[in-house]
């Protein structure tokens, strides 16, 4: 078993099949002469699914040890949360709180980072972004949004 490539094959099969089935059943495929919106995606999906099968078949026949190295779950969550937090708060809370939250979340991703250090880093980043993007480049955003009544 080659776990890594088995997982790779799974990614390809899921992508290929979901896009393929959507193109085949949900769209007009048309003909080679008059290609519908579904034609090209269907061809690509078949290719992806085919490669997924090939990679998967090869993966079950060989034996490869698998020792993956991952970033700590805390880091992954903190990093991914950062842009999502920004997206959720930029309209409502405004630029300053949104950048602050994003930076705090990201700063907490470092291994063993303590909250007060993260807060200091985030404050510095926010001040920097305010200077560069708002005052320097004139980004058209509200500094504080309607949620905090400003």
């Amino acid at each position: 078993m080659d776990i890594k490539n088995l997982a790779a094959s799974l990614v390809l099969l899921v992508t290929g099949l979901s896009f393929g089935l959507t193109s085949f059943f949900g769209m007009d495929v048309g003909s080679a002469l008059r290609m519908g919106p579904g034609y090209f995606p269907l061809v690509l999906s078949i290719l992806i699914t085919g490669i997924g099968l090939a990679v998967g078949l090869k993966a079950v026949t060989v034996s490869v040890p698998f020792h993956p190295q991952y970033a700590p779950v805390r880091s992954i969550v903190a990093i991914i949360a950062a842009p999502i937090l920004f997206g959720m708060t930029i309209r409502g809370l405004g630029f300053v709180p949104a950048v602050l939250l994003t930076a705090i979340s990201a700063a907490m991703a470092a291994k063993g980072q303590r909250p007060h250090i993260a807060a200091v880093i985030a404050l510095a980043i926010t001040a920097f972004c305010l200077a560069v993007f708002y005052y320097g480049l004139g980004l058209p955003v509200r500094l504080f949004g309607p949620w905090i009544g400003v």
């Binding site: 990093i79 950062a82 842009p83 920004f86 997206g87 930029i90 949104a98 950048v99 994003t102 930076a103 705090i104 990201a106 700063a107 991703a109 470092a110 980072q113 250090i117 993260a118 880093i121 985030a122 510095a124 980043i125 926010t126 920097f128 972004c129 993007f133 980004l139």
Partner: peptide, 17 residues
């Protein structure tokens, strides 16, 4: 530890704008 939070903040602002 200082660098990547800054990168993420820039990236978020950049993508949004």
């Amino acid at each position: 530890a200082v660098l990547f939070p800054a990168i993420l903040a820039f990236a978020s602002i950049g993508v949004y704008s």
